[in-house]
Amino acid sequence: MRRARVVAAIGHAVPWAIAVVYFFAVPSDLDFGTQVMIWILFAMSLDLALGYAGILTLGQAAFFGLGAYTAGLFAIHLSPDPLLGHLAAIGVTMLVGALTGAMILHTTGVTLLMLTLAIVSVLSQYANQATDLTGGDNGLQGIRLDPIFGVFEFNIFGKTAYFYALVVLFGWFVLARRIVHSPFGRSLDGIRQNPHRMRAIGTPVWWRLLAIYTISAAMAGSAGALSAHATRFVGLSVLDLLTSGTVTVALILGGTRRLYGGFIGATIYLVVQDYSAKISPFFWEFVVGGLLIATVLLLEGGLLDFGPAVLRLRDRWQAGQRR
């Protein structure tokens, strides 16, 4: 028992240790590491809504983009303080998440999917048209930030951005872990598996879904704010449907309902994208699509399920031998 706990503790420490080691080992490419962590956070936000609660959404980019634009506009027009801007982004996305969630969460299935698509489409078309506010196609430029706590300055080497992303990711991870292991988190599990039965035993299904959807929106908004701060730029692509698709791919590749799924999935996704984009700029879409199809058909639990899936195959084979 104690040994299992030690193993688990080491397991939990591994990704964070890697993040710290990366900082010292690859100081020349911290931007890439920052991007990976942003996408991990983004994928984790989707895991809460889609993975745990089973909310079928392709609109997660709406909150990522909204968070990014809020953080960027806040820095330009209101205050260059990054932490205030980050909080503003979280606040706005929470609010929008709660409002839109309240409207759409009584639906299920394809209708819900279409509603989330409609939300992200409305936002992206609006951002495209409102060039005075968002810069349209040129993106939001001229974001200037004060140093964090007045000490840590954002610079071209990206050290501050890297640790900023790491700390934010860690904070959200701890919160997400507490959520999914709480009675509230367990009830989400039940709602995903059988909403009718959960309602029958007295769970306020709609409120639970709204709560997790709002938290998930805030988390995605936080990832968006990180992205705006780390690159000091917000482009229209943050609200793109492809962004929603990408984060879904990252989550599914790693595996849903594990929180760590996003860690593996987002890292692999970005590395594959980085390498295959060097071969040919669009080859990565082909590769990622193929990976996705293979994951759905062969590995229902994502890459984190690879080991157990092999074990299951072995068991089945042995059972066949005995017979």
Partner: peptide, 12 residues
């Protein structure tokens, strides 16, 4: 997921 994957493959 699978059909999105198919879209990516076709696009690529």
């Amino acid at each position: 997921l699978l059909t999105i994957g198919f879209v990516f493959v076709a696009t690529g």
